[in-house]
């Protein structure tokens, strides 16, 4: 009985972790390349969630297809935000970028509220699932997990094999050296920011695949906090670290449930947050730069 519950928890933890991982990669990428902390991170996840919602509700477009829409929306938003605001802040003190990205997040939330209202919405894409003896696995969650892995893998290949990908990695290593080699650093910044935002918006679609209800213009806030924890855990600036750390976080949040429940008198779910943060602290004590963090 306990074993079954444990197994179910671990599966759910992994599935959730995949979504968490992708939702954090954008944040890590933007910090890694531009050294900008995007405090408005959650607002972009929310945009992705609403993208999936509207595509499904208005045009009956299944969420998996909405991923394409989300990527386009994300790239467009990323470019616009970079060109108008971020570009001017690259040499500004850190506090300015924190305030600016925070302001951008609030702006997006309020603008969304103006158009979409403050209600909690959702959609039903009922496509069945796998029935295991100890639990049910809806296909939507499996698709979310799978998409996350596919996107992360595609991104990895893109970064290591393509010209632009290598240019971005060069800029991360040595901005001036890259410039002298002929790399247009500003364009690299714009592209990286746009890709980071596109990743974040896309993860919003996956979040709704995982949880198709409770979509609301202020939903981003919870995700921002978790994303920061996961980003630090994975090593700030390493998107791959963030991806792995997402899994660990998902496992801690859900996977530890049954184990914690074994401790008498403990209310497990109330504790999972404590557990996640404690684990974070422990890992940072052992490896201060995070799992895959560099210098």
């Amino acid at each position: 009985m306990i074993a079954e519950q444990l197994a179910a928890n671990i599966i759910y933890g992994l599935l959730l972790g995949g979504v968490y991982g992708l939702a954090t990669m954008g944040l890590s990428l933007i910090f890694g390349v531009l050294r900008v902390v995007n405090v408005g991170h959650g607002a972009f996840i929310m945009v992705g969630a609403f993208t999936a919602f509207w595509m499904f509700t208005l045009y009956s477009i299944p969420p998996l297809a909405s991923i394409v829409v989300a990527v386009i929306v994300g790239l467009a938003m990323g470019f616009v935000v970079f060109m108008t605001i971020i570009r001017r802040l690259l040499d500004a003190p850190e506090l300015s970028t924190l305030l600016a990205t925070f302001g951008i997040g609030v702006f997006i939330e309020e603008l969304s509220k103006f158009f979409w209202g403050p209600d909690y919405v959702g959609y039903s894409w009922d496509i069945g699932g796998i029935s295991l003896p100890f639990t049910e696995l809806p296909f939507t969650k499996l698709y979310a997990f799978g998409s996350s892995i596919v996107i992360a893998a595609l991104l990895y290949v893109w970064f290591s094999r393509t010209k632009l990908g290598k240019a971005i990695r060069a800029v991360v290593e040595d901005k001036e050296g890259a410039m002298v080699c002929g790399i247009n650093v500003n364009m690299v910044y714009a592209l990286s920011f746009a890709i980071g935002i596109a990743l974040t918006v896309t993860s919003g679609v996956l979040v709704t695949l995982f949880t198709p209800v409770g979509i609301n213009v202020y939903m981003g806030g919870d995700y921002t906090l978790k994303a920061f924890v996961i980003a630090v855990l994975g090593g700030l600036g390493s998107p791959w670290g963030a991806f792995y750390a997402g899994f660990i976080f998902g496992l801690l949040e859900n996977g530890s449930y049954t184990l914690l429940g074994l401790i008498p008198g403990v209310e497990p779910f109330g504790l999972t947050r404590f557990v996640s943060f404690t684990a974070l602290l422990l890992i940072l004590l052992l490896k201060p730069t995070g799992l895959l963090g560099g210098e």
């Binding site: 519950q5 179910a8 759910y12 409770g214 609301n216 919870d222 859900n254 449930y257």
Partner: peptide, 29 residues
């Protein structure tokens, strides 16, 4: 974001009646 661990246990307890919730998002969830 995910109540699965709790609900999995709930299933095993086989209740007739359920009361709960709190606000909009978690009620829907």
């Amino acid at each position: 974001t995910d109540l699965s661990p709790i609900l999995n246990e709930l299933k095993a307890a086989n209740p007739d009646v359920l009361i709960g919730g709190g606000h909009f998002a978690d009620g829907q969830l």
